[in-house]
Amino acid sequence: MSHAFYIYASYGFTGGMVATVIAWTWLDGHFRRRELASLEAIGIRRRSERKAEGDSR
């Protein structure tokens, strides 16, 4: 095994992991937005939205 192969393999592995984390984060955000929209559609609201309406706390 040459030194260059080790370096290229390391960069390739690191690039693949970074791409995986980016894709995982993007997909999770997509599914959370979809889940939030479905909850809001059935009438469940966010707690932060209640404060904006004039909660005395």
Rank of each mutant, 00 (worst) to 15 (best):
57 R>H: 11
25 T>Q: 12
32 R>D: 04
15 G>A: 07
2 S>H: 10
24 W>P: 00
25 T>E: 10
37 A>S: 13
46 R>E: 09
28 D>T: 10
37 A>L: 08
23 A>K: 09
35 E>S: 08
39 L>P: 03
23 A>G: 03
25 T>G: 07
26 W>T: 14
47 R>G: 11
30 H>Q: 14
14 T>M: 13
22 I>S: 02
28 D>V: 07
2 S>W: 02
55 D>L: 15
21 V>Q: 02
7 I>E: 08
9 A>S: 15
30 H>L: 13
32 R>T: 11
10 S>M: 06
54 G>I: 00
22 I>G: 00
9 A>C: 08
1 M>Q: 03
53 E>P: 03
41 A>K: 01
46 R>A: 06
7 I>L: 12
12 G>Y: 08
35 E>M: 09
18 V>C: 06
49 E>S: 14
31 F>H: 12
38 S>C: 03
17 M>G: 13
49 E>Q: 11
52 A>Q: 10
33 R>W: 01
53 E>Q: 13
14 T>W: 13
43 G>S: 02
19 A>E: 00
26 W>P: 01
33 R>F: 03
13 F>E: 11
17 M>R: 06
56 S>F: 14
56 S>P: 15
20 T>S: 11
44 I>K: 03
57 R>S: 11
5 F>K: 10
53 E>W: 01
42 I>Y: 00
14 T>D: 11
31 F>S: 02
53 E>F: 06
34 R>E: 08
42 I>W: 01
52 A>C: 02
43 G>W: 00
39 L>F: 08
54 G>K: 00
30 H>T: 11
1 M>R: 05
34 R>W: 04
55 D>W: 15
46 R>T: 06
20 T>D: 01
31 F>L: 11
33 R>I: 06
43 G>D: 01
57 R>F: 09
56 S>I: 10
22 I>M: 04
41 A>G: 09
44 I>G: 02
11 Y>P: 05
10 S>Q: 07
57 R>K: 05
10 S>A: 13
36 L>F: 06
34 R>M: 09
38 S>R: 15
44 I>E: 04
57 R>M: 09
43 G>Q: 00
17 M>Y: 07
46 R>Y: 04
38 S>N: 14
36 L>Y: 07
40 E>G: 01
19 A>H: 00
2 S>K: 14
6 Y>W: 05
14 T>Y: 13
22 I>N: 03
2 S>M: 08
51 K>V: 10
46 R>P: 01
20 T>I: 08
16 G>F: 05
40 E>P: 00
23 A>I: 13
41 A>P: 00
38 S>V: 15
55 D>S: 12
16 G>P: 02
40 E>N: 05
18 V>Q: 05
19 A>Q: 00
16 G>A: 07
30 H>G: 04
39 L>M: 11
16 G>D: 03
31 F>G: 02
36 L>V: 07
39 L>I: 02
45 R>S: 05
32 R>M: 09
4 A>W: 15
33 R>Q: 07
19 A>W: 01
28 D>H: 10
46 R>K: 10
29 G>F: 07
25 T>K: 14
41 A>L: 01
11 Y>C: 10
52 A>L: 04
36 L>I: 09
18 V>F: 06
44 I>T: 07
18 V>N: 08
